[in-house]
Design a protein around this nucleic acid. Structure first.
Lengths: 112, 112
DNA sequence: CTAATCTATCGTAAAAATACGATCTTATGA
DNA sequence: TCATAAGATCGTATTTTTACGATAGATTAG
C-alpha cells in the first residue's frame, strides 16, 4: 500500500507527473542544461562534471532516456547524448500549459 | 549514502528540482488543476474527488504548500486553498525557461 | 590477442515518497 | 457543555529513489 495510485488519475495527469518526475532531481536538471547549452551531442564527461559516481550518472541518464527527454547513440566506446526533440515537445505540451496557465495570475485580486 | 547530494548542485538547480518534485505526482497535478480551474479557493472536497484517503490528501496539500505553490487559510472548520501567485511565478521563472528553452528545437537538424 | 577504456547493469544499502488508519485539534451547532 | 465535523498530524508499512562498488560488455590501441 504505497505505490502511486495511478489508476485514480487520467493518463494525462499521470504523464504530466511522470515528466515532472524526470525533472525532479538536480543532477538530471544539470544534465539537461548541459545538453541544451552544448546544443549538441555530448559524450559523457558528465561524470567528472557532476561529481557523482559513474554508475549514478548512468542511472540518471537512463531515467531521462526512459522519460523520452534525451536520446543516446553509440559512437565507438562512447555514447552520445542529446535532447530528444519529440519527447521535449511532449514535455512542452503537457507541463507547459499548466505552468504558464493560470490566467488568474494576471489579475491583481487575491482570493485568500 | 542515498540522500540527494544537493551540495553538488547550484541553488538554482536544487530549486528547479524541488519545484518539479512538487509536480511529480498525479494527485498533486490533479489538485493544482482543480485549484486553477476553480479559479478560486476551494475547501477540500478534494478527498472525495480524488479517491484518496483524507490523510493522504492532506499530505499532498502540505507538500504543495511547502513548495510554495498553494496557500491555505482557515475559514471556520474548513480550509480554503488556492494557488499562491508568488510561488507560481517562481515556478514559471525557474522551470519555464528550461522547458521552453532549447532553441535547437526549432532547427530541423537532428544531431544524433 | 591483450590491455585499457568507456559505459551499462547488477546488487545492495540508505533515504525519501506514498498511503492509510488512528488520533488530536479546533470550531460549529444543538 | 457536549457531540459532531473538518482537517492536520502521528505512526507505520510498503514502495521507490538515490547512490555507489563491483562487474560485465563492447570497442579501441598497441
Amino acid at each position: 500500500m504505497a505505490s502511486s495510485k495511478t489508476e485514480l488519475f487520467s493518463s494525462e495527469q499521470n504523464e504530466m507527473a511522470k515528466l515532472a518526475k524526470a525533472l525532479a532531481h538536480p543532477a538530471r536538471i544539470a544534465i539537461l542544461q548541459r545538453l541544451i547549452s552544448a546544443n549538441a551531442c555530448i559524450t559523457s564527461d558528465l561524470v567528472e562534471e557532476l561529481g557523482l559516481a559513474q554508475a549514478t550518472v548512468s542511472q540518471h541518464l537512463k531515467a531521462l532516456k526512459e522519460a523520452g527527454l534525451i536520446q543516446g547513440n553509440i559512437e565507438g566506446v562512447r555514447r552520445n547524448y542529446c535532447i530528444n526533440k519529440v519527447g521535449w515537445k511532449k514535455l512542452q505540451n503537457s507541463l507547459g500549459p499548466l505552468i504558464a496557465g493560470p490566467e488568474l495570475l494576471n489579475s491583481d485580486k487575491n482570493c485568500c
